[in-house]
């Protein structure tokens, strides 16, 4: 009985599901399969010379330690940016969800999602104006401080972190906001009435209940940051050479698409392994 009903439900749901799945198939699986194919070619030349299939591109990753070093650097960057986003985003989301109400909440929300409204390239370039020597931050600091400071963060690792945090912080604020907002205020009051300080309430009640939001935000940030190339290239200069910029080089500068594709799949595999390994741990924590 129930099985039959579920079947007919699925049939009825098909018109609703089909557009999304058709789009996903076209937009993700086709290009992805094409990239799998590219990554196995010896070369791709516009002249149409015949290329043969090989695993050599994948072997390149292991033969040159530079790639592994860059991958570790990128994973490190992903961790740092995610951590900074948690530290900045969670308190902001808490204030938005639990302290501000009505108009004030809407206004602050607008500020949080404002980065989404501007073009990402414009955003990154505007940071370069702020961070460089003689830039907005440098001038402002020297105007306030009585002594002379030279402030030049441009083309440095911190600049990359600042730019990436700016780009990805809204994800953390939004996911944390959603899980914090779902926590009944009475739970917080109950903990307080039982003698818990604000900090104990945060640690024992709020944080465990908000953990799914923090994790969702972390996944949304960590994965793209590990593969990021625009912020490292523009804000990081020479120090900004990372795994993502190397992949980009293969596609846009060196025109070695097979190697670029192979490096991308290695990144994908590493990220998937990290998610799979951490899943049981996180599930236990949640």
């Amino acid at each position: 009985m129930t099985g039959k009903r579920r079947d007919s439900g699925l049939v009825k749901a098909m018109p609703l599901l089909l557009p999304a799945y058709a789009w996903l198939t076209l937009a993700i699986f086709l290009p992805l399969s094409a990239m799998v194919y590219f990554s196995l070619l010896t070369s791709m030349s516009p002249s149409g010379q015949s290329a043969t299939l090989t695993l050599g591109n994948y072997a390149t990753f292991f033969s040159d330690p530079l790639y592994a070093t860059l991958l570790v650097r990128s994973l490190e960057l992903g961790l740092i940016v995610t951590l900074v986003c948690v530290l900045i985003g969670f308190p902001a989301a808490y204030v938005l969800a639990k302290i501000f109400k009505g108009r004030a909440r809407e206004a602050i929300f607008l500020l949080v999602i404002l980065p989404f409204w501007s073009n990402s390239l414009v955003r990154v370039f505007s940071w370069s104006m702020v961070l460089r020597e003689g830039g907005i931050l440098d001038t402002a600091l020297n105007a306030i401080l009585p002594f002379k400071v030279t402030f030049d963060l441009m083309y440095s690792y911190p600049a990359v972190i600042i730019g990436l945090v700016h780009s990805y912080l809204p994800y953390m604020v939004l996911t944390c906001y959603l899980s914090l907002q779902a926590i009944d205020d009475a739970l917080i009051e109950a903990a307080r009435s039982l003698g818990a300080s604000r900090f104990t309430t945060l640690r024992r009640v709020i944080a465990p209940l908000a953990l799914p939001g923090v994790l969702a935000g972390s996944a949304l940030i960590f994965i793209p940051v590990v593969g990021s190339f625009m912020e490292p290239r523009i804000l990081g200069g020479h120090g900004g050479t990372l795994y993502g910029t190397v992949i980009e080089d293969q596609f846009t500068a060196v025109y070695n698409w097979p190697l670029g594709a192979a490096l991308s799949f290695i990144l994908l595999a590493v990220v998937l392994v990290i998610l799979l390994v951490s899943a049981p741990v996180l599930r236990k924590a949640a």
Binding site: D184, A186, E189, A190, S193
Partner: peptide
């Protein structure tokens, strides 16, 4: 509230 040594039962139990 956490220093008052009271006990409270909430409408939705919490």
């Amino acid at each position: 509230v956490n220093k008052r040594r009271i006990g409270m039962v909430f409408q939705n139990y919490a």
